[in-house]
């Protein structure tokens, strides 16, 4: 083997090694970026389903009002809770534990106001038999299920991402590229399951 040939082999090996290293880092960087985007995407789904619930409320309130006009306090409470829940806007790029907590507590306020409305509805058998009301009830129930599903999807994507960036050797350079551990959308005690919407 001549000196010239040796030189080419060494250069070839170095080029290949660099290429492999580069493509390895590139692949895991791209995977991290994709997973990060996935979290953002799943978060917007979470917001969508909460928005969907908020959108149902005016219709629900007006239907209940038709049968239970004098339950004013309950109506005021629910309208206020809805306004509060829809006013909490958080930046999907900065989903830290604190902003998630704010979002959660506003939505919980609306959940409990809805719960009180349901107790009121119990006293009006005619309302419970009304087809329009039954449709709304089914929509609300479906929406609570959607909330459970999208929250779970969000938390699962956060978990997959957190596990991914902590794996060796990605843990050495994930932070260099700005990929930090993400926070979960924690639920309060007992609210992992969709609340029963029974009238």
């Amino acid at each position: 083997m001549t000196q010239q040939q040796k030189k080419w082999i060494i250069i070839g090996v170095i080029v290949l090694a660099v290429l492999f290293l580069f493509s390895g880092i590139k692949n895991s960087y791209n995977k991290m970026a994709t997973m990060d985007e996935q979290i953002t995407g799943n978060w917007s789904q979470v917001e969508n389903v909460y928005q969907r619930r908020a959108d149902l409320i005016p219709n629900l309130v007006s239907t209940v009002k038709g049968y239970a006009a004098h339950e004013n306090q309950t109506f005021t409470e629910i309208v206020e809770a809805r306004a509060k829940a829809t006013s909490v806007n958080i930046n999907p790029e900065k989903l830290d534990a604190q902003s998630l907590q704010e979002f959660q507590s506003a939505q919980d306020g609306l959940s409990s106001a809805l719960g009180r409305l349901m107790v009121v509805v119990e006293n009006y058998p005619d309302l419970k038999a009304n087809q329009n009301f039954r449709d709304l009830q089914a929509q609300l129930e479906g929406t609570e299920n959607r909330i459970t599903v999208e929250r779970r999807n969000f938390n699962e994507s956060v978990q997959a991402y957190n596990a991914f960036i902590r794996m060796f050797p990605k843990n050495l350079y994930a932070a260099v590229f700005g990929f930090e551990k993400r926070d979960y959308f924690k639920s309060l005690e007992g609210s992992e399951k969709a609340p029963e919407v029974k009238f």
């Binding site: 389903v49 089914a138 129930e141 479906g142 299920n145 959607r146 909330i147 459970t148 599903v149």
Partner: peptide, 8 residues
């Protein structure tokens, strides 16, 4: 995929 829509 399923997102929780439907009724029971």
């Amino acid at each position: 995929s399923f997102g929780g829509g439907g009724a029971s």
